[in-house]
Design a binder for these strands. Sequence first.
DNA 1: CACCAATCTCTTGCATGCAAGGAACGTTAG
DNA 2: CTAACGTTCCTTGCATGCAAGAGATTGGTG
Lengths: 234, 234
Amino acid sequence: MTEEAGGSTTTSIQAKVIAEMRARIISGEVDPGAPLSELVLADEFGVSRTPVREAFKQLQTEGLVEIRPRVGTFVTTPSRREITELFEMKELLEGAAARLLAQRGRVPEIDRLRHNLAEADAAVARDDREHYAELVGEFHDLLITGADNSKLEAHYTTLMNQLAYPRLVKTSLDQPGRPLQSDREHHLVLELIIQKDGDSAEQVMREHVRASRRALLAGLPAPGPGPSTDPART
Amino acid sequence: MTEEAGGSTTTSIQAKVIAEMRARIISGEVDPGAPLSELVLADEFGVSRTPVREAFKQLQTEGLVEIRPRVGTFVTTPSRREITELFEMKELLEGAAARLLAQRGRVPEIDRLRHNLAEADAAVARDDREHYAELVGEFHDLLITGADNSKLEAHYTTLMNQLAYPRLVKTSLDQPGRPLQSDREHHLVLELIIQKDGDSAEQVMREHVRASRRALLAGLPAPGPGPSTDPART
DNA sequence: CACCAATCTCTTGCATGCAAGGAACGTTAG
DNA sequence: CTAACGTTCCTTGCATGCAAGAGATTGGTG
């Protein structure tokens, strides 16, 4: 769930390039808007331009980079508007996942969610935001997986990649009181799922996503939508 | 909306190949499971293997073809299960679009939807299924566009491409009484949207999608999920 | 001093060559 | 006749070469 969005069936070198580049982008190792040179990366990976080029092509389809013909390839910089849209989609998909999971009844994912929340409670109790952030990611992933719809899962992964979510979670959890609130909301959602109340589960889950989005935006100072000409990391 | 799913910013030849191949696949001009040779297509388009290859890469990410390394590229054959999943997503996205559109209030798309339904009524009245099928597609597209969320639109387009929807619509409309029923449901949805009743609009829209899916599956004889080794069109 | 223009370099787009890996076929042994 | 094996052909994966376009830099001019 964490990596591999599309369907990279390729066995070798190209897959590595794609995975590595994707990781760098969503982790924020390369800055949004930064140019990505085929040649430089090819040298770095010790391969020719071709696989790098094909990797770019795929990452473009995934929405992680933008290829401007004859100009260069750049890490995409989601505009404020796009971030809103992405969260709208996140809300939609996660809400649906909660409902679908509730409909499925007793499946292994339920237990794993329970276990996840137990750990999360402990992490919140000792104010371990680092670990809690991981657990939050796992919770949402489990929810999606539990919906048992591969298409939903694929679209969701693409979405999260575009949001570079791992970076964002921490920001939102730095809001005072947010971890505790978040943890409570997770509990409520799981409870409703176990009760097979799909409608409520979806509703609460959507509200949860909105709350997390608010917490996130409150923690973001400058949007920085401008396509920075910053030549960092060339 | 009909073509261009990902973000093919490329200016020239490669974009043509992608568009053409996509059109052929969703129109059913090439059979599902059929092999696609880089060399053959390169010859046909009068270009080298490279752009064809890159086009394949993108189409793979879109879920239209499957590249088996060192073996070949094949038109994807959605399994019965995948079709179910795709419809689940369709229901989800179109339902959400209806709700979002209702929330937006009076926008140009509303009028275009009205006009579309007027034409649709006429088409149904004279039993012009061909034209009605087109109008149905337009109705759904307008709905999505009206939601004013580019991410939703992008995901929706990908979805429809994977379903090769244009082919399917006609099948479902061949069910007796389905066009009339479909038209009525469209009217109801639009009515609810105009009344700004987002919740109901979403609910009815989702029911409509389910109904259309039922009509479709009733008209499909054999699933044929097997990855046919049929070497047609080599 | 400001502005315009020509050039010059760096970028990607495409063509092509070579090699590695499968799959299918024909062959041969049991 | 069947089954296992070896070979051949066909497929894509990757490397590289060349050309065209865009952008930045620099020189010239008003």
